[in-house]
Design a protein around this nucleic acid. Structure first.
Length: 259
DNA sequence: ATGTCCCAACTTTTGGGA
């Protein structure tokens, strides 16, 4: 099974690129962030034409998350449910082929002295509560744009980012708490010591200069992680005409319990 | 480093956000 996550920075603006990427890569499940659409504009029919059933948690101009699956999609959960959830449309969950999937768009945080930074930390705390315990039999994948680089290896120049969001101790503590639930940051797990970026600013020629960060993450429960055969970032998708500023992250694994 | 892209709107240019 192949699961991908991609912050598309507007699904309206990116639709042709998304279609081409799906046709080229054939993910079984594709999680999207920053669709920037309300549900009435989301291309349900477009996904259906490609053989996917899609679900969306959208709000309009900002945020918006989706899951598209060609292996079934059940038990859809929009938002945090009973947990405080007033920071926009940032999470949707569903079960695809027996695997629990959560597509997340963590708040950016803007700046360390901005109230949105505190909301970002709070949102990550609430995500950990929402995910809950990860016992050995649980098949779970939590993916998305976390807007946090887990460690200094995951940014092009730690010194240039001092005093900025995405790299602070409190943010990284929250990622460690996700790991503390038992989830595995699967790209780092599969590529120890390798610098792999998923996002490059549109400005300053950042992509061509290699000024990027690894902020789009795939967290697998141990049951899923045990079956992973590949984990990569498709940086080709950051090239060309009208790219998103993020590249897709793609993880392939054998289904839990498969012979 | 702040050079881009995307969205909405009292829309044909500007401001907010990332």
């Amino acid at each position: 099974m192949k699961v991908a996550t991609w912050n598309v920075n507007s699904l309206t603006a990116r639709w042709e690129r998304v279609v081409a990427w799906i046709e080229d890569n054939g993910p079984d499940v594709l999680c999207l962030q920053e669709t920037k659409q309300d549900d009435s504009k989301f291309p349900f029919a477009g996904f259906e034409a490609l053989g996917y059933e899609a679900v969306h948690n959208g709000e309009g101009r900002w945020n918006g998350v989706a899951i598209a699956s060609r292996v079934g999609i059940d038990d859809v959960r929009r938002g945090f449910g009973t947990i405080e959830d007033d920071d926009g449309a940032r999470i949707i969950g569903a079960t695809c082929n027996g695997i629990e999937v959560m597509s997340c768009y963590v708040p950016n945080g803007r700046a360390l002295d901005d109230p949105f930074y505190a909301r970002k930390l709070s949102w990550l705390d609430r995500l950990a509560s929402h995910v809950g315990a990860v016992p050995p039999q649980r098949a779970l994948i939590v993916v998305g744009d976390f807007n946090v680089a887990p460690e200094d290896l995951d940014v092009w120049d730690p010194a240039a980012l001092e005093g900025s969001t995405h790299v602070t101790g409190p943010e990284r503590d929250r990622l460690r708490a996700i790991g503390g639930l038992g989830l595995v940051d699967i790209v780092r797990d599969r590529r120890p010591g390798e610098q792999v970026f998923t996002w490059w600013d549109y400005r300053n020629g950042a992509f061509h200069r290699g000024w990027g960060m690894r902020i789009d993450l795939v967290w697998c429960s141990p049951l899923v992680a045990a079956g992973v055969t590949d984990a990569l970032v498709d940086r080709e998708a950051r090239k060309g005409t009208k790219p998103s500023d993020h590249a897709p992250v793609v993880v392939t694994f054998e289904l839990p319990g498969a012979p």
